[in-house]
């Protein structure tokens, strides 16, 4: 059983969590060209290495962020979205 440490509920079985994909920016759709808007919609972070991503603890419906290495699968840290540094 693999554990994921939830910032609200502590270490829990990873099966209790839902993966919501990589963190991405929220650009203003009116300020972007069509090509950049398409890029925003379809292109997601996929580089091998450390990645910031959204997770949800299903039973408590709590959404948080994790930094995880996509080659070793090691979870570096998990934190509440309010702790996200601006510009990250």
């Amino acid at each position: 059983m693999k554990l994921l440490s939830c910032p609200l509920n502590g270490p829990r079985n990873i099966e209790e969590f839902q993966y919501l994909g990589p963190l991405r920016g929220r650009p203003d759709p009116d300020a972007l060209s069509d090509a950049d808007w398409a890029r925003h919609l379809f292109r997601a972070e996929n580089r091998p290495g450390a990645m910031l991503e959204w997770w949800r603890h299903r039973p408590s419906n709590y959404v948080f962020l994790a930094e995880r290495h996509t080659v070793t699968n090691a979870v570096i840290r998990t934190f509440d979205p309010s702790e996200l540094e601006p510009g990250a």
């Binding site: 693999k2 099966e15 993966y19 091998p48 996509t70 080659v71 070793t72 699968n73």
Partner: peptide, 13 residues
């Protein structure tokens, strides 16, 4: 696997 990964390990679940 339910999340992005570059590893070819197997998991019991």
């Amino acid at each position: 696997d339910p999340y992005q990964l570059y590893s070819t390990r197997s998991t019991l679940d």
